[in-house]
Design a protein around this nucleic acid. Structure first.
Length: 267
DNA sequence: CTAATCACCTGAAGGC
DNA sequence: TGCCTTCAGGTGATTA
């Protein structure tokens, strides 16, 4: 489901609702969703803060961390109702206040990890796309000698963390780069443009509270608005806002990929 | 080591 | 209505 902007919106909400809370119990309804794989476990931890790295949501606690990855269809909902929906409910965190943090996940791809060493967990992880470490020289370095197509390279979280299918298509459009371009063929000028395009695309999406296509929602059940501002994603056969050419959709490494053939010519 | 493809799951949407 | 196919904000494992 979500990419960096959606996760960021969720983290901001969770941060104000969960900081200072205490988890007093965890119940797992689908074993694979919670990586210790215990159905029930004694559990008492204070949540100090909620942060993010790439698409991972991080609950920072006294002596350990809970990491949540929503993958395609995961949702986190905070509720004080006793009558919540059980359909697709996978994990329940009970809080001392009486509220519950509910993890829903229709496709069961999402994962929640309980770990004690963040550095080790993220050792193979690239820089976050909104961090200051993600700058033009970093982008130039990781692009050096790479022959992969730019779209699939940007999907790889070991280099840049946070980008996914929607925002890569949108960023490549803004930068005027064809998604099949071999990474090492990008000119310095295009690298600069792409860096700016990625930043702008993500920041705009966060301002719009994320993109709701099918089931992304915020922790209180609200929707995003960024779907109304997409320029290529989901617009196949519609006219490019810049030049009027029909937006094309192709399959790249098994992912639907949208672009304007005129604004993003093959290099 | 790098790059591409498959596997994991379920449900919604479209064609017939 | 219903059956069948395809597709989906992701990523780990497997293959070449």
């Amino acid at each position: 489901m979500p990419e960096l902007p959606e996760v960021e919106v969720i983290v901001r909400e969770l941060s104000s609702r969960l900081s200072g809370e205490k988890i007093i119990n965890v119940r797992t309804l689908w074993k694979k969703s919670f990586v210790p794989n215990n159905q029930e476990m004694p559990f008492e931890h204070n949540i100090l803060s909620v942060t993010r790295k790439g698409k991972f949501i991080i609950l920072n606690m006294d002596v350990c961390y809970i990491l949540v990855h929503l993958r395609m269809t995961g949702q986190l909902i905070v509720t004080n109702s006793h009558n919540y929906d059980m359909r697709h409910l996978r994990v329940i965190f009970e809080l001392e206040s009486g509220d519950k943090l509910l993890f829903y996940d229709a496709r069961k791809f999402g994962r929640i990890y309980l770990i004690d060493n963040l550095g080790k967990f993220f050792s193979n992880f690239g820089v976050d796309a909104l961090s200051t470490e993600f700058d033009i020289s970093y982008l130039k370095d990781i692009f050096n000698k790479r022959k992969a197509r730019i779209k699939s390279f940007l999907m790889d979280q070991r280099y840049i963390a946070g980008l996914g299918n929607i925002y890569i298509d949108e960023s490549l459009f803004r930068a005027g780069v064809h998604p099949s371009t071999a990474v090492h063929k990008l000119s310095y000028k295009k690298i600069v443009q792409l860096h700016g395009a990625i930043r702008e695309t993500l920041e705009h999406a966060i301002m719009n509270m994320g993109t709701t296509i099918s089931n992304y929602m915020t922790t209180g059940g609200g929707f995003g608005n960024n779907q109304y501002y997409l320029r290529v994603y989901g617009r196949e056969n519609e006219s490019c806002y810049t030049c009027g050419t029909k937006i094309m959709k192709i399959r790249l490494n098994n992912r639907g990929t949208h672009f304007c053939p005129k604004c993003q010519p093959v290099k």
